[in-house]
Write a protein that binds this DNA or RNA. Structure first.
Lengths: 156, 156
DNA sequence: ATTGAAAGAGTCTCAGT
DNA sequence: ACTGAGACTCTTTCAAT
């Protein structure tokens, strides 16, 4: 699974730029890194073909779209071997946006985005409790997101 | 904080498209939604000015860049009033990519991205334990990320 | 508010080094 | 492997409706 492709400093610096802002032009990136726009293009294409970079997403302010509640859910399973079947059911709930199979207290760690507390309560109580294999859940409602960034892979 | 701007179905459908793939052209989006590329442009501009949409990020495969370990950290504070000062210190650690102030057991819920377990151990033991105000932490290492998507804001 | 066309900017290709 | 120029595509502006 490790990187087969040898990435040099230039590659990493380009990824760093793109992670921070995907809107900067190849010419601008090149100017900062003292290479031509063509070279930047070749490197990006290479990394896209290797699956290192895969596409772009807009940053969306969910609160402004009316999604005011972000919460994290720690899920205890009856048996951890039930992971696959429970995960499959959880994926059907559109409010659940992320799921990780984790070590520690919880078997599954999920993130959920809801319009309001009423909707959160509905998903937790009516949808989650129906899923077979879930023993119990613990919910952590985010009161404030004070950081959301990408890991630093190279000097910016 | 709620959306002052009245967003209609067209706006939401456009956001939905862009959240899924920021690379589709305005013409393509328009074709799907039966409007011109110009209209798509106007709507996107309006939403950018309103801060609903703010910029683009490339999706990056962190594992292929050598970052194999994603973990979640539940942090207990000595007093929850220490949140601001602890948060400030945590932000200085580049491996920490996300932080939420939460209800429930933990005061702070953080996400961390490391190259390997050695680096994770270093951050947890040497860096985190040095921060004043942290009582103790619980770590959940992700063994598998089985879902990572955006919330559905409109019919796709 | 939406459209269609023209102008501007960026990406992509390729021959040359 | 990098460069620079030309071809191409997309974004952006704008006059008309």
């Amino acid at each position: 699974m490790a990187s087969i492709l040898n990435l040099d400093k230039l590659d990493l610096s380009i990824v760093q730029q793109l992670m921070h802002d995907a809107n900067v032009s190849y010419a601008e990136i090149g100017k900062k890194l003292f290479v031509s726009a063509g070279t930047v293009h070749v490197r990006i294409k290479k990394m896209q073909e290797a699956g290192i970079i895969s596409g772009m997403n807009y940053r969306v302010d969910l609160k402004k779209l009316g999604y005011d509640v972000i919460a994290f859910i720690g899920i205890y399973l009856e048996k951890s071997s039930l992971y696959d079947v429970v995960a499959k059911d959880l994926k059907k709930i559109p409010e659940i946006v992320r799921m990780n199979y984790t070590t520690g207290n919880y078997s599954i760690f999920a993130e959920i985005v809801c319009k309001d507390i009423v909707q959160l309560r509905y998903v937790l109580h009516d949808e989650l409790q129906k899923i077979k294999g879930i023993e119990r859940t613990e919910t952590f409602i985010s009161l404030e997101e004070s950081l959301n960034r990408s890991v630093k892979v190279a000097a910016s």
